[in-house]
Every structure is written in structure tokens, then in C-alpha cells.
Nucleic acid binder design. Sequence first.
DNA 1: TATTGTTATACTCTATAACTATA
DNA 2: TATAGTTATAGAGTATAACAATA
Lengths: 141, 141
Amino acid sequence: MPKPIAEQGNDLRLAVFRLARRLRAHHTDDGLSDGQFVVLVTLHLHGPHTLTELAERERVSAPSMNRTVNCLEERGLLVREPDGDDRRKSNIRLTEAGTSLVTATVRKRDAWLTEQLGELSDEERVIVARAAEIMAGLAHR
Amino acid sequence: MPKPIAEQGNDLRLAVFRLARRLRAHHTDDGLSDGQFVVLVTLHLHGPHTLTELAERERVSAPSMNRTVNCLEERGLLVREPDGDDRRKSNIRLTEAGTSLVTATVRKRDAWLTEQLGELSDEERVIVARAAEIMAGLAHR
DNA sequence: TATTGTTATACTCTATAACTATA
DNA sequence: TATAGTTATAGAGTATAACAATA
């Protein structure tokens, strides 16, 4: 008999929070917080965004995202470019420094996780990969 | 050809952080933070712990856990009982109020997740359940 | 009027350092 | 000396409210 769905949900929530906390503890010393790093990755993968778009994508308030973007801007990792059509907006995009930092850092930051995944069986890795897709789907409903 | 493991790691990290953030946004109004809630669940599932044990289990500093425990103690959800053998220690355990709050709240807090899981296919649910086990394993290495 | 971005402000959670009591 | 717990303090990240500029 399979577990009740509510219990599965509880298991999943605990696993997700614990793994998130564990991953957070494995910062490399690039001085980027998770939130900052995820913004850089988003801009790298999906191109320029406005502040509001970034805030909505990461489900964070606009002031909070503004602060994150300010930090990254001060470090020269991204720039705000005035939007030609709508002067309220600015389009936020990675600088070259930002792009190369993302590329260089992704593997470094994932080193621990990659190592752990390497110790799983092939079957387990397939499951985790599929689950990652499913969880990403859940997350943006 | 399967994805490189490093890329799988990146996908998993993003999925975990996004889902964690999403779950965090679905608090019910019981006034418990994630950290507080996880402590209650831990005590419920695994019995009394010392402060240091709780801190280590949740991979959080002792002062941080102390603060969390203080909040829960003030709310009458747990108590510190002096250890008979070692007077430096106290054993932290749920009160009746704490126990019934956990039981009552678990389902409420998981309502959103349960609903989402209910919309997955049986196959997807199996994958997620297996992945939850695997991730929990990864998290406490 | 509504929307985009920003500033001001406060709250929560976290950590490190230093302290007390006990082992 | 070492360990369990606590207090003091500071930093990072978040939110809401109020505001400016623009649509």
C-alpha cells in the first residue's frame, strides 16, 4: 500500500528544506548569497529582465529584489539599461564580468552536490533528475 | 545521452531552492517559522533532544537554536527538563500543546503541496517519493 | 489611475565571540 | 581543560508602506 499523499508531501517538504539548508552551507567563498547567485544564473540563462520580472520570477518583493540587484550592480556584475519604449523601466543584463563569473562559479558551487550525485547509482540519478523537473514544475504553479 | 552530472546538480539545486521558497510562501497562519516548525516535527518524530543535538541535527549554530527553542518554550509548545545525570544539559521535549499543534498543523501546512501532488500522475508521485528519500540521504551526509 | 522602480524602516533568522556552570 | 548552554551583538535577507516618475 502506498503512503498517503499528505505524508508524501510531508516527506518531500522535509527533504527539500534540509537539502536546501545543506546546499546553502556549501557556499564557495565568492561572496554571493543564494538569492544573488540565482539572479545571475537567471539572467545568464534567460537574458535581460526588468526588476519586476526578476522579483516575480524569484517570488520575492520588488524592494528585496532591488536590493539584490543593487549589490550585484555595485560589484559590476550586471547593469541597468534604460528601456527605449518605457522610461519607467530598465532592462537588467549581465556584464562580461557577470557572465564569466556565472560560468566559472556554477561548477564550483555545485562541487559538493556533483560529488554526492556521483556516489548515487545510475537509477537513483535518473530519479533525481526526473524529480528535479517535476519539482521545478510544482514550484512555479 | 544523459546530462552531465554537474548539470544535473545545477538543475537539482535550482529546483530545490525554488520549491523551498515556494513552500515557505505557503505558510498557514500558525505563526511558526520553518525552523521552529521543523524543530517541533523533529521532537515529535524522534523524541527529546538536547539543545546541542537539535542544533547539530538542523545544522544551525547553538545560539540560533537556543533562540528558536526559547520562542517555542514561551509559547508553551515544548519544555526544558534538567538532565538527571549531567546538570549542564536539559532535555527538550514537546508539551501536550506542542504535540497536538504538530499533529494538527502538519496536514494544514502541507495542504498546498498535497494538492499539487494530487495533480501529478501516479508515476510522477512515485518518482517524487523516491527522490525525497534520496535527497534526505544527501542532506545528512 | 495604474504601473515601475525606489527609499525608509523594521522584523526574522543567522552567525561569532564571550561568558557561566558543570564535567 | 573541555563541554552545554546562554547572552550580547551584528549582518544578511526579507517584507510593508510610502513615494517619485512615467504610462
